[in-house]
Computed example of a mutant assay.
Amino acid sequence: MTEMQSSETREISGVARRIVSLKAWQEDLREIRKAEKELTLAHDRVAAKRRHSAWMKVDRNYDFAGPEGSATLADLFDGRAQLIVYHHMLKPSDPSPCVGCCMVADQLPHLSHLHARDTSLVFVSKAPTVEIEAFQKRMGWSIPWFETKDSFNPDFDVSPTGFGLNIFYRDGDDIYRTYFTKGRGLETLGTVWTFLDLTPLGRQENWENAPSGTQQSKPYHWWRRHNEYD
């Protein structure tokens, strides 16, 4: 049987599928891999644009409530330079918490890997703390999660019934907003890398295009099992 003759179309589970030889299958895969590599390089270029993008200084204080009581935006950093804030749609007496927001929570990486890159990640919601804690227990989550007490959501482009993700950087007493996304901009998140690529410091590896002065190390050099970081 020749190579041309080895290709056929079959209906599998109601869908027409091309069935080919090993050689043809490998050629098809090479074309896919080429497109995937182009997408990876495009992603790297966009991440570099984020690292070089302008910042906006946060010029007011915001109030939150957490398991340990009241907190400020600065407190949410937990001593780290970068802060990722996911605005979860959980509302007071919520009978049906947002499925999409819950999927985001289910996909989070172990936070120790982000912490190793001087980055904190928290959730915020309009629901009161007692309801947040009950929902976390029900879902088996341990994400740092705070109740917003004021105009934090609308001030940072999240509607009262919406969701989104903001990135902040802290330098001493000064806090800056560096990035924001919502909608489908959130659907690829879930790994350490996809979160770090949103931040102004990035992965902090020396292959990245980053502003001069950014502290970087060799790829893989900083990686640890999640219970082995200092």
Rank of each mutant, 00 (worst) to 15 (best):
L29T: 13
A24T: 14
V15S: 09
V99A: 14
F64G: 04
F168H: 06
W145T: 07
S96F: 00
L90G: 01
Q204L: 05
G213D: 10
A35E: 14
N209V: 13
I12F: 00
P160I: 00
S96E: 03
A47T: 04
T194R: 04
R33Q: 15
R30W: 10
M1I: 10
L198E: 07
R17K: 13
F135I: 08
V20H: 06
A24Y: 06
N153M: 04
E31K: 14
T129L: 07
S159K: 02
A35M: 12
K34Q: 14
R60D: 02
D59R: 00
T191K: 05
F180E: 02
F77Q: 03
Q107Y: 04
E147F: 04
K49M: 13
K137I: 11
I175N: 05
G140Y: 13
M56P: 00
E131M: 09
G183H: 10
R184H: 10
S7K: 12
P95C: 00
V104Q: 11
T119G: 03
L201M: 15
K57A: 02
D157C: 01
R80Q: 09
F180Y: 09
I32H: 14
P109Y: 04
W223M: 13
H226Y: 09
V158H: 01
S96K: 00
H87W: 01
G213K: 10
K57R: 07
L108G: 03
Q107K: 10
F168C: 08
G183P: 04
Y179V: 03
R50T: 12
E11K: 09
E27D: 13
P109F: 06
C101V: 12
K23M: 14
S93G: 00
S212A: 11
I12D: 03
P154M: 01
R10D: 07
T188N: 13
R18F: 08
P92R: 01
P97T: 05
D106G: 15
A116N: 13
H221P: 02
I143M: 15
E3V: 11
R45L: 14
G202W: 04
W141S: 08
S53F: 08
M4R: 12
S125Y: 03
V192M: 10
V58Q: 01
R10L: 15
Q216S: 12
P92S: 02
R177I: 04
Q215A: 14
Y86P: 06
D44K: 12
M89A: 14
T119V: 01
K49V: 08
E36M: 11
A24K: 11
F180T: 02
E133D: 11
L186G: 07
V20S: 10
R117N: 13
V46E: 13
G14R: 06
K182I: 03
D106C: 10
R50G: 07
G185K: 06
S212G: 07
F123I: 05
T40P: 01
E133G: 05
L39H: 11
R184T: 13
T194C: 03
V46P: 01
A16N: 15
W223P: 02
T129N: 10
R50S: 09
S159H: 00
S120M: 07
A42W: 06
